[in-house]
């Protein structure tokens, strides 16, 4: 099971990202555990500079803006 974290301080784009990741994982039938990280110190610990960012397991795979559908699908292949 993949652990997916969405890093962001709670703006609209962060919420959209969470929803999109959730629905695409469901569509593909991939089981994930989805977490939202809103604490700024925790976010900074990942070294990202723009939010929303996405961390899969421990790796930052995306930063700055809502990721595209295709990109999200690639994470779950």
């Amino acid at each position: 099971m993949k652990n997916v974290k969405v890093l962001g301080t709670g703006c609209a784009n962060c919420r959209n990202t969470v929803q999109l990741v959730e629905s695409i994982a469901k569509e593909l039938g991939v089981e994930i555990s989805l977490e939202k990280v809103e604490d700024i110190q925790a976010i900074m610990a990942y070294g990202v500079m723009s939010t929303p960012a996405v961390v899969i397991d421990t790796k930052v795979v995306h930063a700055g803006g809502v990721p595209g559908r295709e990109k999200i699908e690639q994470w779950f292949v």
Binding site: M44, M49, S50, G64
Partner: peptide, 15 residues
Amino acid sequence: TPFCSCSAVPLFIGF
């Protein structure tokens, strides 16, 4: 540079 006020803090620290 693309900027959204919700990214202000990470950007600030990143800089």
